[in-house]
Design a protein around this nucleic acid. Structure first.
Length: 578
RNA sequence: CGGGGCGUGGCGCAGUCUGGUAGCGCACCUGCUUUGGGAGCAGGGGGCCGAAGGUUCGAAUCCUUUCGCCCCGACCA
C-alpha cells in the first residue's frame, strides 16, 4: 500500500485528555478518534489491527470446533426479566436502554447470555445435539460509571463472546478446559505477556472462573501471585494466610477509654503507641441491599488489614453493598463515624468478623459512643466472637494458605474472562434437553469473553517506547514499513517498487512511504509512531540494491542486500503466523 | 452521585480578572529552495469564541440557564 494514497494524519502533540500511553499514541497516530466519552471511531489503521486480532480469535475458535454466529445488539427487556438480570443491570446503571416506538423497552446488549440461551433452547431438544459452543464478534454496550483510558474502558467496544452448552457438569468442565486452551493460544499468538488468574464471577454469575490478565503496571486490576507455587488470583478473589499477633503480656479487664477525635487507626496508634496495630480491631458498617430489603452489616477486621467487599457481597448473597453513610452509622452505633465497635450495636445490625481477628486478644475496638473506645477486650470473655469468615484483602507478603511461600501483588489488564455458569440461565429460562433416559434436564452452560479492542490497547500498553507504538508482528496493521527516502529518485523508485511488489505477492502487507516533499526525519518519526514491526529503508544505496534493515524495537539494524531483506521479511511473517 | 477544572480554526494553547469586534505554535494551501531523524523563506485559506437567554452603545470577556468533556473522590471508622 502506498502511504500517499492513505488517509494518513499524525499529530505532533498529544491530545489533552489522554492519560495512558496506549491512548495517547493511538490518538496521535490517527488510529482512533474520540466521538464522545468512551466512544471511539476506529480509523483504517486501527481497523486493520482489530481485524488481525479477530482473525486469530476466529482461527483458534474454529480450530477448537466452535461455531461463529451473530446475534442482535438490540435486546427486548422481556428476556432480561426472564433471567432476572434486568433490575440489577438497570439499578447499577450500566445498561443502555430505551423505549421503542410501541413503548416496549429495549436494551443495547452488554453481553448475550439471554439471547443465546433463548436461541439454543428452541434449537436444541436432544442430548444428541450437545455439546455445542457458539461465538460471535460484535460491538457491546456498557454505560460505564467512568469510561477512561481510551479503548481500555469504553462504553462501546468490540468483544468476542462464546457460550458452551453441555449435558452435565463434567461435560461443561471439559468445554471450559478446552476454552482455557483456546484462550492461552490466542493471547500467545497475539504476542502478549499474560497471566491467567482465578477470578470472581461477578454479575454474570456462576462458579468456576478465570481471567486472562495482560501484565502491565497501568492495569486496573490488582493480582495476587506466588512465584514459588504458580498461584495467581484476582485480588477480589485471592486468599492467603496471616499470622496472629503476640498475646498481651498480662490480661486486664475490659474498660472504656476516652479517645477524643480519634476516628482512624492512625490516630489511635498515636494515642496508644504501645499497642500494635494488629491488636486494634476496626468495625466497618455496610448497607447491604437484597432487592426487596436492606440490612445493616458490621464487619470486624484487624487494623492492619482491609476488607474485601467482593467476598463480603458474595457471602451475604446481596445484590449490592455500600459503605454505610453518616446517618446509618449514627443509628446503628449511636455514635459519630469513627467509633463503631462490636459491643452495643443496634439490635438489627448483623455482626460478622473477618478471619484476621482470629487469635487476637486484649484488643482495642470502638465504644459505640462518640470519642470512646474499649481497651483490653477478649473474645469469649467480653463478647462472643461473631461469625468469622474470610472477608480480607490479600496483601503483599502474605503466605499461601497451604505453604510458607510468599505472595506478591502485581497489576494487569483483563483481556479475557471465562466462566462456568452451570444451569443458572438454562433453569431460569427453561433451556432443557431430553436425556437418553427420556428425562428433561437443563443444559450446563459456560461463557467466555475477550475484549478485542482492549487486546489492541493492552498490546500497546505493553509494547511502546518514547517514540511510539511497537506492534507485535501477528497483530500489526502492516508487517513491513518500506521507507523510501527520496521519492522521485529513479533508482529508489525502482527498487522500492520491486520490494513492495515482491512482498505483497508473498502475502506480506507492506506500507510504502513514498510521499514526496516529506523529509526523511518526518518519515522516520511517523514510522516510529505507528510502530510497524519490520522496517526496510530504501535510500542512498538503492543503486547497489542495498537497503537498511531493522526492527521497530531497535533490534538487528544493518545494511543488507535488498533480496536478502525480502526473504528475511517473508520468513519472519510466516513464522509469526504459527 | 459529590468535589474541582475546562469548552476559542483539524490538534495544542493565549486572550476572560480590567467589555471595544480574535491571536500564537503545529497542521493545511500556493510558489521557490531543501532532502538520512519532525527543513527554510515568502505568500495564503480557515474560527457566528459549546448552546440559549440577559445586561450594555458594544460581550470570547459580565450575569443566568443549559449541554458537553476531563480529573479527583465515593469516606476501611
Amino acid at each position: 500500500m502506498r502511504l500517499s494514497e492513505l488517509l494518513f494524519v499524525t499529530l505532533r502533540e498529544e491530545p489533552a485528555d489522554a492519560e495512558v500511553r496506549s491512548h495517547a499514541l493511538m490518538a496521535r497516530a490517527g488510529f482512533i478518534q474520540k466521538l464522545a466519552a468512551g466512544i471511539y471511531v476506529y480509523g483504517p489503521m486501527m481497523w486493520r489491527v482489530l481485524r488481525r486480532i479477530e482473525g486469530i480469535v476466529r482461527d483458534e475458535h474454529d480450530r477448537a470446533g466452535c461455531q461463529e454466529m451473530l446475534m442482535p445488539a438490540m435486546q427486548p427487556k422481556e428476556l432480561w426479566v426472564e433471567s432476572g438480570r434486568w433490575d440489577r443491570y438497570v439499578s447499577e446503571g450500566i445498561l443502555f436502554h430505551f423505549k421503542e416506538r410501541k413503548g416496549s423497552e429495549v436494551c443495547l446488549g452488554p453481553t448475550h447470555e439471554e439471547v443465546v440461551t433463548n436461541y439454543v433452547r428452541s434449537m436444541v431438544q436432544s442430548h444428541k445435539q450437545l455439546p455445542v459452543i457458539l461465538y460471535q464478534i460484535q460491538t457491546k454496550f456498557r454505560d460505564e460509571i467512568r469510561p477512561r483510558f481510551g479503548l481500555m474502558r469504553g462504553r462501546e467496544f468490540i468483544m468476542k463472546d462464546a457460550y458452551s452448552f453441555d449435558v452435565s457438569a463434567d461435560a461443561m468442565a471439559e468445554s471450559y478446559a478446552k476454552m482455557r486452551e483456546v484462550y492461552r493460544n490466542i493471547f500467545t499468538r497475539c504476542g502478549l505477556r499474560f497471566t491467567p488468574v482465578e477470578a470472581d464471577s461477578g454479575a454474570i454469575g456462576g462458579s468456576g472462573s478465570e481471567e486472562f490478565m495482560v501484565d502491565a503496571d497501568t492495569g486496573e486490576d490488582a493480582i495476587a501471585v506466588c512465584r514459588a507455587t504458580g498461584y495467581a488470583a484476582n485480588l477480589e478473589k485471592a486468599v492467603s494466610r496471616i499470622t496472629p499477633p503476640a498475646q498481651p503480656e498480662n490480661e486486664l479487664a475490659m474498660h472504656l477509654e476516652d479517645t477524643p477525635g480519634a476516628k482512624t487507626c492512625d490516630a489511635l496508634v498515636e494515642l496508644f503507641p504501645e499497642l500494635p496495630l494488629q491488636r486494634l480491631l476496626k468495625t466497618v458498617l455496610y448497607k447491604a441491599s437484597y432487592g426487596d430489603r436492606e440490612e445493616t452489616v458490621a464487619v470486624m477486621c484487624r487494623g492492619d488489614r482491609e476488607i474485601n467487599e467482593t467476598k463480603l457481597l458474595n457471602h451475604l448473597g446481596a445484590v449490592g453493598i455500600e459503605m454505610a453513610d453518616e446517618n446509618l452509622v449514627r443509628s446503628a452505633t449511636g455514635a459519630e463515624v469513627g467509633f463503631a465497635g462490636p459491643i452495643g450495636l443496634a439490635d438489627d445490625v448483623r455482626l460478622l468478623a473477618d478471619q484476621s481477628v482470629v487469635g487476637v486478644q486484649g484488643f482495642l475496638c470502638g465504644g459505640n459512643q462518640t470519642d470512646t473506645h474499649y481497651l483490653d477486650v477478649y473474645f469469649g470473655r467480653d463478647l462472643e466472637q461473631p461469625e468469622t469468615v474470610d472477608f480480607g484483602t490479600v496483601q503483599a507478603g502474605d503466605l499461601m494458605v497451604d505453604s510458607d511461600d510468599v505472595i506478591e501483588i502485581t497489576r494487569g489488564i483483563e483481556v479475557g474472562h471465562i466462566f462456568q455458569l452451570g444451569t443458572k440461565y438454562s433453569e431460569a429460562m427453561g433451556a432443557n434437553f431430553n436425556t437418553e433416559a427420556q428425562t428433561l434436564e437443563p443444559m450446563w452452560m459456560g461463557c467466555y469473553g475477550i475484549g478485542v479492542s482492549r487486546v489492541a490497547a493492552s498490546a500497546i500498553e505493553q509494547n511502546h517506547d518514547e517514540n511510539g507504538m511497537i506492534w507485535p508482528l501477528p497483530i500489526a496493521p502492516y508487517a513491513v514499513h518500506l521507507v523510501q527516502m527520496k521519492a522521485g529518485n529513479e533508482a529508489q523508485d525502482a527498487l522500492a517498487q520491486e520490494i513492495h511488489d515482491k512482498l505483497e505477492e508473498s502475502g506480506v502487507d507492506v506500507l510504502w512511504d513514498e510521499r514526496k516533499k516529506v523529509s526523511p526525519g518526518a518519515k522516520f518519526k511517523d514510522a516510529d509512531l505507528i510502530g510497524v514491526p519490520i522496517r526496510i529503508v530504501v535510500g542512498r544505496d538503492a543503486g547497489d540494491r542495498k537497503v537498511e534493515w531493522g526492527l521497530r524495537d531497535g533490534e538487528g539494524r544493518e545494511v543488507r542486500d535488498a533480496d536478502e531483506a525480502i526473504v528475511a521479511a517473508i520468513q519472519m511473517v510466516q513464522e509469526s503466523r504459527r
